[in-house]
Amino acid sequence: MEDPTGIAALAKILPPDLGADEEIDWSAAEARWGTRFPRDYMAFMSIYGAGEFVSADGFGGLGILMPLPKERVHPLSDETFEDETENARSTWEMLGGQEGLDIDPQHILAWGVTSGPDILCWLTADPDPDQWPVLVWGRHTDEDFTLFGCGMVEFLRRLILDEHDPYPLSVNLSSLRYVHRLQQKR
C-alpha cells in the first residue's frame, strides 16, 4: 500500500522508539492558524510527536514544534510555533526577501528550529497543504532563505540520508536519533 505521507520511509531509517502521539486537536489548530496542515506533519506528530532530532556528537539538534502550545516543547529554545513563525516572517521582511523568491511573508509558517539557529518553515501559498514546500532560513548558510520542493517528512528523510545539495542547515546533524519532548525532560 502506498504511503502518501512518506512517514513509513522515515521510520525505516529513523525508528520512532522515543516518540509519542501528541494527540493534537487538529480542528483547534486549523482554527488557530486558518488553514489545514500537511498530512505528513500530522502523521509525524502522531508517531514521533514534538521533540528533537539529536546529533550523535551532541553539538546539534533540530526541534519540531507543535501548532498549539502545551508545555516547553524542546530544549533548543523556549520558542513556540507562533514565535518562530513571527521570527521567520519578520526576518523575510527585514532582509527584503530574496532574489528569485516572490513570497508574501504571511505565507511563511514555521514548524522547526535548529541549534544553528535555523528556522524550518512551509511556504503556504498553495491551497493544498500537501503541496507546501519547505523554506529554510539558514542563519549561517550561503543563502538566507532556501526553498525545497518537498514536504516536511521528505525534507527530514533527505536530511538524515545527507541527500540535500547544498546542505540546508547551519549545523551539521549527523547520526541522528529522535527524542520526544517528554523523554527529554526525564
Rank of each mutant, 00 (worst) to 15 (best):
T80A: 03
T80V: 05
M94W: 13
F81N: 00
N87K: 14
S90R: 15
E143R: 15
G63K: 01
V54Q: 09
A56N: 03
S170F: 07
P16N: 13
L68D: 01
N172E: 13
F145D: 08
G60A: 12
A88G: 04
P127M: 12
V54F: 06
R139G: 11
H107K: 14
D104A: 09
G151H: 02
F155A: 10
P75M: 07
S46C: 03
R72D: 07
S90I: 08
P15H: 08
S46T: 11
F148W: 14
S27T: 09
T91E: 12
P4S: 11
T141H: 07
D3L: 08
S77N: 10
N87L: 13
F145A: 10
G51L: 07
L68C: 04
Y41Q: 00
E143L: 13
D83E: 14
S175M: 05
H74S: 06
M94P: 01
V73M: 06
R157N: 07
H74V: 00
Q184L: 09
D25I: 03
I64G: 04
A110K: 01
G63S: 06
F81T: 00
Y167A: 07
I64K: 05
V134T: 11
A31W: 00
D83L: 07
I103R: 04
W132D: 03
E93R: 13
A11G: 06
L95Y: 09
A11M: 10
A110F: 00
G60M: 04
L18H: 14
M1G: 15
I7Q: 02
L147Y: 11
R72L: 15
F59D: 11
E84A: 08
H74T: 00
Q98G: 09
G97V: 08
M1R: 12
V134D: 01
W137N: 11
Y178A: 02
L123W: 15
I13A: 09
P117S: 15
D83I: 09
S46Q: 14
I119E: 02
S55V: 08
A11V: 13
